[in-house]
Design a protein around this nucleic acid. Structure first.
Ligand SMILES: [Mn+2]
Ligand SMILES: [Mn+2]
Ligand SMILES: [Zn+2]
Ligand SMILES: [Zn+2]
Lengths: 139, 139
DNA sequence: AATACTTTTGCAACAAAGTTGCATTCTTAA
DNA sequence: TTAAGAATGCAACTTTGTTGCAAAAGTATT
C-alpha cells in the first residue's frame, strides 16, 4: 500500500514527500469521502494544517482526487478511479451518496449520472449529483 | 414588492421584521442564487452578520429558501417556488447551473432532475444536481 | 392605546476555517 | 555530491461561523 501511493505521485509527476504519501494512505484506507477536517484529525500532529490545504489543492489539480459538493460547507474529497488519474483530468460521472444517519459520503462508482437536457444556450462542462438518504450500512 | 415579502413571512407564521423583509427583498430582486456573503455585502451596514445567519437558517427551516450545494464552501440560497413554500417542506426537483464565466448560480426551474437507480439497500430522500458550464448570458 | 408576553436583534467574545509570505528543509536531476 | 527548484512549517492574518445574553421590537390581549 505504501508503494501504491508513491506510484500515484510519480504518475502525476509530483515529488514524493512524506506528507503526500501519508495523505494518500489515508485516502486509500478510507471507505468514504473525507473533508479537510477529517484528514487534519488523522495527521495534524505530523503535518501542518497549511500543508494539508496545499496538498489537497495539488491532488485536485492533478486529478488524483475529486471533490464532492455539499450544503454544509464541508467539501469532501475522494480518490479518482485509475482511468481518471491516468488521463490527468476528471471524467467522473458517478453519483455520490450522503447518509443522513452515519453522515458518510461515498462514491457510487457504478451508478452513472443520467443525462439531462439543458435549456437552449447553456453549455454543460461538468455535472454533479448528490443523493441524500440512508445508506445500506445504516438500514 | 414590499407587500410580497410580508406575505411570505405571514404565510410561514413568522413575525414581520425589518431585516427579514429586507433580506427577502434582496432575494426577490436577485436573478441568481445568493451566498451569505452576497447578502452581507448588500446589507451589513443595516443589519448584523449574526442576524443574517439566523434569518437564512429560519428561512431554510420554513421552506422559504433552499440551498444549493457547492464545491467552493459557499453554499448559495434561492427562493423556493410558491408550491414549495405553502406546503412547508421542500420538494424542489430542479437542476441548478453554475456558470464558470460569470460565476452566477441559477435555478433551472423547468429542468427536472432525471430519476436515478441506487444500488440495493440505499434509500433516497433528497437529490441534488448541479451542472457547471457556460450560461446563456455568457455565450 | 397600553400592557404583558414572546421573539428577534445586536453586541461581544469566541472558535474554526482558510490564506499569504518567507525562511528552512527536502527532492530531484545533473 | 551538489545545485536548483519544490514543498513544508511557521507566524501572522483574514474570513467565516457560533453562542450567550441584554436590549429592542413584534404580537396578541385587554
Ligand atoms: Mn466520487
Ligand atoms: Mn433552486
Ligand atoms: Zn449510513
Ligand atoms: Zn454566465
Amino acid at each position: 500500500m505504501q508503494k501504491q501511493g508513491e506510484d500515484i505521485l510519480k504518475n502525476s509527476a509530483l515529488s514524493v514527500t512524506a506528507s503526500r504519501k501519508r495523505i494518500l494512505e489515508i485516502f486509500l484506507a478510507a471507505d468514504n469521502a473525507l473533508a479537510h477536517q477529517d484528514i487534519e484529525t488523522k495527521c495534524a500532529d505530523q503535518y501542518d494544517r497549511v500543508t494539508i490545504y496545499r496538498t489537497l489543492q495539488t491532488f485536485l489539480e492533478k486529478g488524483i482526487i475529486h471533490n464532492i459538493p455539499s450544503t454544509d460547507n464541508m467539501v469532501r474529497y475522494a480518490l479518482c478511479n485509475d482511468a481518471c488519474i491516468t488521463t490527468g483530468h476528471h471524467h467522473d460521472n458517478h453519483v455520490h451518496f450522503r447518509c443522513d444517519q452515519c453522515g458518510k459520503t461515498v462514491c457510487l462508482d457504478d451508478v452513472n449520472i443520467p443525462p439531462v437536457n439543458l435549456p437552449r444556450g447553456y453549455t454543460m462542462k461538468e455535472i454533479n449529483m448528490v443523493v441524500n438518504g440512508i445508506c445500506k450500512s445504516c438500514k
